[in-house]
Amino acid sequence: MRLPHRPLGQGQPWRHRPGLIAVPIGLIVAIMAVDLVTGADIHLGPLLVVAPAITAAIGGPRLTAVIGALAVGAEVALSAIFGRLTTADQQAQIGAILAVSLFLVAFRIVFERHEQTLDQTRLVADVAQKVLLRPLPSRIGPLRIASLYIAAEAEARIGGDLYAAVRARQGTRIMIGDVRGKGLAAVGDAALLLGAFRAAAHRRPPLPRLVAHLHNTVYWDVAEPTAGPDADECFVTAAVLEIPDRGEQIQLINCGHPSPLLVRDGEVTPLAVREPSLPLGLGGDLTEDDYACEPFAYRDGDLILIFTDGVIEARDAKGVFYPLAERLAAYKDSGPQELIDHVHADLLAHTGGTLNDDVALVAIQRCP
């Protein structure tokens, strides 16, 4: 696949705010005017180097070269007006402005090349994330769904948090998980688990058998001799829900993951299982007998929020954790997308816009 190429200077601030070009040009004009007014005894020409220096911060190499040429031309013009063009001191000043301008142009060229490489990397990561963490549809059967993924690092696109929904016969299966590893190993485990879930969930095996399959997929991948030195640190906390199209009950298996929250008539209830299972990948080779579903009431209009611990472990400036259940109790709207938007905005306000961990959220509502 050929990725688009960005021309030099395309992402510079002056292209979005052309008025910025007036700043270095205005400086050149102002320095020349003041130098002419103060006379030959005061030499302000060397200050002209400020113009290309500022341009390098707001423009690309071409614009920096143009402003540098204007600065050199202005210094030559001032030298000619005051009759000192042939003096060694004046020629040294002209050479210095020229040298600095050339250095700034070279710097901008190198910086632009680096930005192009970074842009290509970001684009590849965006494509990879869309393949790995497919956006959930807004409607699956009788369910309305909204989801959100936020990377902790501003430049990150892929992390260890994951979610997926699969339409099975007469129901929907939804999984959320958090890989407890780091780097490419975490991304690889997330991709492996998502692939296993999507391949098996639609065949409608009993939920314990499905979760045992997911566990063994992670476990045996970690046990491979080629898994790498960091593989022993990798495991996955996960919650897997089965929501039938009919009836007023859902089934849940929780493998060491934060309990989903049920929002009903302004009340928030954790869907806490009595016997949580080990995280996926821990505990050896397991069978469906090692897992048990737990039922929970789920009526028309109820909202379920599943999330990773990056939400409830987010802290404010005083170190206070984000009180998710408390905030949900004060939530008055009624749709999953509105709920996700509300939690997103409230979470960023709580943390001051900075997150220390990836965050994944999925809201599910059964429609009448």
Rank of each mutant, 00 (worst) to 15 (best):
V72P: 11
L44F: 14
E75I: 00
T86Q: 13
A92P: 00
A96G: 08
S101H: 12
M32N: 09
G59Y: 04
V37W: 14
Q90V: 11
L48Q: 08
I31Q: 06
G68E: 03
I31W: 06
A80T: 09
L44H: 07
L63K: 09
P52Y: 04
A30N: 02
F82Q: 07
L36A: 12
Q91K: 14
G83K: 05
T86L: 12
L36C: 01
G26D: 01
T86C: 00
A80V: 13
H43S: 02
D89C: 00
L98D: 04
A71Y: 06
L85M: 12
G26R: 07
V34W: 02
D35A: 02
G83S: 10
V34K: 01
L63A: 14
G68W: 07
I67V: 15
G68V: 02
D89G: 09
I81E: 09
I42D: 01
A80K: 05
V50F: 13
A30R: 04
M32R: 11
A96H: 06
P46H: 07
L48E: 05
A30C: 05
F82W: 15
P24D: 03
D41L: 04
L44V: 07
L47A: 14
E75W: 03
R62C: 01
T87Q: 15
D89E: 14
V66D: 00
G39H: 08
S79E: 06
L63D: 05
F82C: 00
L27W: 07
T87A: 12
G68D: 04
G60S: 06
T87F: 09
P52F: 02
L47F: 15
G83W: 10
V72E: 07
Q91D: 01
L85R: 12
D41W: 10
I54N: 01
A40I: 00
I28F: 02
V50I: 15
S79M: 08
L63G: 04
A53G: 11
V100C: 09
A71Q: 03
A74F: 08
G60E: 07
I67G: 03
L27T: 08
A74L: 08
I58F: 10
F82I: 00
L70S: 10
H43E: 05
A74H: 14
L27R: 07
A30I: 01
P52N: 07
Q90R: 15
L47I: 01
P24L: 02
S79R: 14
V37C: 00
G95H: 06
A92Y: 11
A57Q: 15
D89V: 13
L102C: 15
A56M: 06
D41H: 15
L85T: 10
M32W: 02
I81Q: 09
S101F: 09
V34I: 14
I67E: 03
I94G: 05
I25R: 03
I94Y: 06
I54F: 13
P61N: 03
V100E: 02
G59R: 09
L48G: 08
G95P: 00
L20D: 10
V29D: 01
I58R: 12
L78A: 05
R84E: 11
Q91W: 13
G73P: 00
S79H: 11
L20F: 10
V49D: 05
T86R: 10
I58D: 10
A51Y: 09
T38R: 13
A77N: 08
F82A: 05
A53Y: 08
I31F: 13
A65N: 06
A92Q: 14
D35C: 01
E75P: 00
P61K: 04
V72R: 12
V66K: 12
